[in-house]
């Protein structure tokens, strides 16, 4: 017959409980942390020909971009503000405020982007000029290529922001 002291008994039970805890927590914690190690499926979307733009006049266009995360494959409607700078460069700004990621609106009278959530302000080039935003409006990762047939400038957008916010 097995003879146990009370102390030994408590020690063994404690060890057993710890073993159960470990066996349960390894898969659970691993499962919980898995999003940290998943990679976004990169997708390039051909948006189309770049529309005519007036200098410093943001023009919103709707993109269909899949988020590429988890099992999400359906493209979602997203906004890009196209801005032509005076030096000819084109900005493809997101409408995601760098403060709390709300949707910024363009105010044509003030010529500013305004975030309705907490009153962040950006100028037409997306620089944060007032309120809580800590950094400028992020841009979509994009490239502009001339169409070999028509010679138009075609805008391609990737499902990523070119600045981690």
């Amino acid at each position: 017959m097995l003879r146990l002291t009370r102390r030994r008994m408590v020690q063994l039970t404690g060890l057993g409980a710890a073993a159960i805890g470990l066996m349960l927590s390894i898969p659970a914690i691993g499962f919980l942390l898995s999003p940290l190690f998943q990679k976004t499926r990169e997708t390039w979307v051909r948006v189309g020909a770049l529309p005519d733009l007036t200098v410093d006049q943001p023009k919103p266009i709707t993109l269909k971009v899949p988020s590429g995360e988890a099992y999400d494959t359906t493209p979602v409607d997203r906004i890009a503000y196209l801005v032509r700078k005076s030096d000819g460069a084109t900005l493809v700004l997101t409408n995601t405020c760098s403060h709390m990621q709300c949707d910024v609106h363009f105010d044509p009278t003030l010529q500013q982007f305004l975030c309705p959530c907490h009153g962040g302000l950006y100028d037409v080039h997306g620089n944060n000029i007032g309120g809580p935003p800590p950094s400028p409006l992020p841009q979509w990762v994009h490239r502009l290529e001339p169409d070999p047939q028509t010679g138009q400038t075609i805008l391609f957008v990737k499902n990523a922001y070119d600045e981690s916010i």
Binding site: L110, Q112, L114, G119, L121, G130, G131
Partner: peptide, 9 residues
């Protein structure tokens, strides 16, 4: 001041 910024920039 924040309201002035938003409504009378």
């Amino acid at each position: 001041a924040k309201e002035v910024q938003l409504h009378a920039f």
